[in-house]
């Protein structure tokens, strides 16, 4: 993006206007996330900066809402539920999705396009439609208001992410590496653990992370399919926003931003590791 030395005055001007414009758009993207972090340390029960906060007066800040969060049984129970449901759904989706991806990348897979479109559809169909449909069907087979019902529903929603990432990893997998390992004297078991697994794992793990975050962040289906027993964290937030707006929600939001930074970093590290193993990038 560097300006060439022959750029005219107008071009220079436009270049800086363009950069300024982009900076504003980046601010629009990231600003809202930055605003809530200080707001969550508010000492008063308001959703905005108080006068004390604006003057950087320490008394305007407190950990009051974090304390509220970590001592509330409703919030802690909802986190426990979110993890139970999220982890079960992720495991199920990852196992089913990875096995299916092995078949989908086979050269002789019949009707690949059609099957792929079907497997991706839970990602495309609006959540409210899936939620209503699952409610109708699950109530018929007595799965509503059970953990199993919510887990099955979230597995279905997570599957497209696993299928997409794992198929992408597998289709870029160089099968000559297996032959190379054999010719260098490795037996199939050793080849699998030393060559195949390290190359495929990053794709599977990032698929699993996508599936987990999908379940962990999902409101609509839980709203329809679950009962009071399976209250998850998003549901707790949802009713918090609708009923009594308390800055506890901002504290939760800040913690969740922290979680997404953690996930993003993990994914980036996995991607780099994958590239390095494949010899795509040095270092």
């Amino acid at each position: 993006m560097a300006l060439p030395s022959y750029a005219t005055r107008g071009e220079r001007l436009w270049h800086y206007v363009f950069l300024g414009l982009c900076a504003l758009i980046f601010l629009f993207l990231i600003g809202p996330l930055l605003v809530i972090i200080p707001l969550s340390f508010n000492a008063e029960p308001y959703f905005t900066f108080t006068r004390a906060m604006a003057h950087l007066d320490p008394s305007g800040y407190s950990l009051r809402w974090y304390h509220e969060f970590f001592t509330s049984s409703a919030w802690l129970d909802s986190i426990k539920n979110s993890f139970i449901i999220g982890i079960s759904a992720t495991l199920l989706a990852t196992v089913l999705g990875t096995i299916a991806a092995l078949g989908l990348t086979s050269r002789h897979m019949p009707a690949r396009g059609l099957i792929m479109a079907l497997l991706i559809s839970p990602m495309i169909v609006p959540l409210i439609i899936s939620a209503a449909a699952m409610f109708f069907f699950f109530s018929k087979i007595h799965l509503t208001q059970t953990y199993l019902g919510v887990i099955l529903a979230h597995t279905a929603l997570g599957i497209p992410f696993v299928v997409i990432t794992v198929t992408a990893t597998l289709s870029s997998f160089d099968t000559t590496l297996i032959r190379a390992a054999h010719s260098l004297g490795a037996n199939p078991v050793r080849t699998f653990f030393k060559v195949v697994l390290p190359l495929v794992t990053p794709g599977v793990v990032s698929g699993a992370l996508f599936a987990f975050i999908t379940s962990f962040d999902e409101v609509v289906v839980v709203l329809f399919v679950s009962g009071p027993e399976q209250r998850t964290m998003p549901i707790q937030m949802w009713s918090g926003i609708r009923e009594e707006i308390s800055p506890t929600i901002l504290a939760v939001a800040t913690l969740l931003v922290g979680l997404s930074i953690l996930l993003l970093t993990t994914l980036e590290l996995l991607r780099r590791r994958g590239e390095r193993l494949r010899g795509l990038s040095p270092g």
Binding site: L29, V219, V252, L256, L264
Partner: peptide
Amino acid sequence: LPFWTSLLV
């Protein structure tokens, strides 16, 4: 980062 952050947040 916004892409990965909870919709409710």
